[in-house]
């Protein structure tokens, strides 16, 4: 890749609902592996991915308490990617659609995730080398 390339992703799905979510995070991880700067615009349910109060739980069916279960949380995935980007020396920007946040009541997000509007998606896309939109599906 050329030095300092940037990719923008738009994503719409909430956590714990669709296989698209884990595919999306695999893509973000691979983008950082490739040395790319990453921009994310989270729209609709995807704004809950960074919700700070996501809470891990035990699972009696699995026979594991909360510590043993180590339940995946998308806010921790985002934080892990933020740390990876810092380690790799690339940028990792995350903007949530603010109106989508308000209507879902997920205003408290982890550090490093901001609030914006579709204008930010356009700014991200205009400045990036390429953009991938992952739309939701019924």
């Amino acid at each position: 890749m050329k030095e300092g390339q940037t990719l923008t992703f738009a994503f719409m799905d909430p956590p714990f609902e669709s296989a698209r979510t884990s595919t999306f995070f695999r893509l973000l991880d691979a983008a950082l592996d490739a040395g790319a700067n990453v921009n994310v615009f989270a729209y609709e349910g995807a704004v809950a991915l960074s919700f700070a109060h996501q809470s891990a739980h035990g699972n009696s069916i699995h026979g594991r308490d909360a510590g043993e279960e180590a339940h995946p949380l998308s806010r921790e995935w985002i934080a892990a990617l933020q740390r990876k980007a810092a380690h790799c020396g690339v940028q990792f920007q995350w903007i949530n659609c603010g109106l989508c946040v308000d209507e879902r009541g997920v205003n408290e997000v982890i550090d490093g995730c901001g609030r914006g509007s579709p204008a930010d998606l356009w700014k991200f896309a205009s400045a990036a080398d390429n953009t991938l939109v992952i739309g939701t599906r019924d």
């Binding site: 729209y43 609709e44 509007s117 579709p118 204008a119 998606l121 356009w122 700014k123 739309g135």
Partner: peptide, 13 residues
Amino acid sequence: TIVWLSRSMRGAG
């Protein structure tokens, strides 16, 4: 939501 997003982005140029 996508028609709305399109109107919003159009407003941003």
